[in-house]
Computed example of a mutant assay.
Amino acid sequence: MRIALLGTGAVCHVLAPAFLDLGHDVVVGTRSPRATLDTNQAYARLAERHPALELRAFADAVPGADLVVNAIDGPSCVAALTPLAPALAGRVLMDVSSPLDWSDPDAVLDPVNTDSLGEQLQRALPAARVVKTFNTLVAQAMAAPAAIGDGDHTVFVSGDDAAAKAVVTGLLESLGWKDVLDLGGIRTARATEMMLRMWIDTWAALGTDMFGFKIVR
C-alpha cells in the first residue's frame, strides 16, 4: 500500500518507519520540503536513517496514495487539509489529530463536546473517507502496542465509511493491535477526543505517558 503521511512531528517519526518495515511505500507531506530539511534536524536525521522516505509538499504527497494519515497538529489541520479536498476525494483519511494547542499551557480542548476535529475534517472534505484513531495514545505507543501491558489495551476507530474503517483496522492489526474497537460513525470521535483530558491527567499521575486505555467486556 502507498501511504501519504502528512506532518513531520512525533507521529511521523514513529509511524513512517513502522509502515516501511511492513513493506508499505511511504511519502511524507510537509508545507515546505526545503524548509523542513533545512530547519527540522530531527526529520533530517529520520530521512538519513530511512532513505526510502519521500518528502513532498502536501499537495504533491496525496496523489497516488491508497491511504492518507493526518498527523498535522490539531489547531492547523483543518485549514491545511481543506485545499486538498479534490485530491482527497475517495481516499481513506486516517486522522490521529488532537484538539489541543500543546504550545499553550492554558489551552483547552477546542472543539469539544458538540463537535470534533474528526467531524470538522469530514465536513471540510466531504468526499474523503475519514477514520479517527490513535488519538488516545502517545505517538511512541501507536506502532508498539506490546510495549504497554503486553498489548492488552484498546485502540478506537470512528468513521462513517465501513470499508474505510476496515482498511484502517487491518493496518492497525498489522502493527500488532489486538483490540480494535469500532465506536461507530465519525460523530463518536467527540468521545475519544475528549479522552485527552483524562490522558493528560493520567500521565501526570503515573509520571509516564506509556499507558493505554482498556475496555473490559
Rank of each mutant, 00 (worst) to 15 (best):
L5G: 08
L6A: 06
A10P: 00
A10E: 13
C12H: 11
V14I: 14
P17K: 11
G23N: 10
D25R: 10
G29Y: 08
T30A: 14
T30Y: 03
T30R: 05
R31H: 10
S32A: 08
T36L: 04
N40E: 07
Q41Y: 07
R49W: 02
P51W: 09
A52N: 10
F58E: 12
D60H: 09
A61Y: 12
D66M: 11
L67F: 10
V69P: 14
V69C: 13
P75R: 14
C77F: 08
L81G: 13
A87Y: 02
L88A: 09
L93N: 07
M94Y: 04
D95F: 08
S97Y: 12
W102G: 00
D104N: 15
L109H: 02
L121S: 00
R123K: 05
L125M: 02
P126G: 06
P126Y: 05
A127C: 00
V130N: 04
K132G: 08
Q140F: 04
A141D: 15
M142S: 07
A143K: 00
P145K: 08
A146V: 15
A147W: 04
I148S: 03
G149S: 12
H153A: 05
T154A: 10
V155M: 01
V155H: 00
F156E: 05
V157F: 04
A162C: 01
A163H: 01
A164V: 09
K165L: 11
A166P: 07
V168A: 02
G170M: 03
E173I: 03
S174A: 11
L175T: 00
D179N: 12
L181S: 07
L181I: 10
G185T: 07
G185K: 06
R187P: 00
A189K: 01
A189D: 02
E193D: 02
E193L: 00
M194Y: 05
M195I: 02
L196G: 05
W199S: 12
D201M: 11
W203Q: 09
A204N: 08
A205W: 11
G207A: 11
G207E: 13
M210T: 15
F211H: 08
G212D: 10
